[in-house]
């Protein structure tokens, strides 16, 4: 069964009279409960693809089917209504929130807009959401600016799961976090997936992060999809030059004490 099918998607930008092909004839599928890692260097088109999927940019050509329906033809109230099923978490957690908001109002909005819980039950639901992402219930009253970067990303995840989506698009969702916090957020995402069957499209330039959570991987280069396959297969035996470069670029932790200085002193 397919949850999401992207078919022959294309997008061009014109910049100073020059045509740039950002996404060129890309087709992808994603199944329920599956994580697809979308990787590529800067300018590969992966973020443009994600933005088209989130309906933040129009496509020039191609189609997207989501939960069996034409996703790109939705508009107005229909689109707003259906957005409950496809949520997103961005890299810049502070930029993704109204800076004057409290944690409670950030979580209340989706519950209200998508009519998930009647008004009387919302405080309890907010407490449950906070608990689910590992934050104490009394965080509800805090300002979104008062909490740390890792906590803010937990709140962004709570906001995303509030509408009971089938798909969450994660756009560099852990890239700005310290490594010790990053691992905890990745663990939380995997737990939520196992518990609720959510699918993730995880966009990142960091293959090591994608390795931790992705079942399959899609590699983009210069707007094209150049390679796709099971995660393990692609990192063990990359076929395209772009995938080989990405695999090669991941820094390895060298711990051999016998190596000595790496250069002549």
């Amino acid at each position: 069964m397919t949850l999401l099918a992207i078919e022959n998607l294309s997008k061009r930008f014109s910049s100073g009279g020059r045509e740039v092909v950002a996404v060129s004839d890309v087709s992808l599928t994603l199944g329920p409960g599956e994580t697809l890692g979308l990787v590529g260097a800067s300018g590969s088109g992966k973020s443009t693809l994600a933005r088209i999927l989130m309906r933040l940019l129009p496509a020039d050509g191609g189609a997207i089917r989501f939960e069996g329906k034409d996703w790109l033809s939705l508009s107005g109230a229909n689109l707003r209504h259906r957005r409950a099923r496809m949520q997103m978490v961005f890299q810049d957690v502070l930029g993704a929130f109204n800076p004057r908001a409290t944690v409670a109002s950030v979580l209340n909005d989706p519950l209200r807009i998508h009519n998930i819980v009647p008004k009387a039950g919302r405080a309890t639901e907010i407490a449950m959401l906070l608990d689910r992402v590992g934050l104490p219930a009394n965080y509800a009253e805090r300002s979104i600016r008062e909490v740390s970067g890792g906590q803010r990303q937990r709140i962004a995840i709570a906001r995303a799961i509030a509408t009971k989506p089938s798909l969450i698009v994660l756009d560099e969702a852990v890239s700005a976090l310290d490594v010790s916090i990053r691992g905890k957020i990745l663990e939380l995402l995997v737990e939520l997936q196992e518990e609720r069957g959510i699918s993730y499209l995880f966009v990142s330039h960091d293959l090591a992060v994608l390795r931790a959570v992705s079942h399959r991987i899609a590699v983009m280069d210069a707007g094209r999809l150049v390679e796709t396959g099971p995660m393990r297969q692609v990192i063990e035996n990359p076929q395209s030059p772009a995938a080989r470069a990405l695999v090669h670029a991941v820094p390895r932790l060298l711990t051999e004490p016998t190596e000595g200085p790496s250069h002549d002193v």
Binding site: R211, A212, S214, P230, V250
Partner: peptide, 13 residues
């Protein structure tokens, strides 16, 4: 906390 391509993934394969 370091993750690289040799680190066991968090998901079932």
């Amino acid at each position: 906390s370091h993750r690289d391509l040799a680190t066991p993934p968090l998901i079932r394969e």
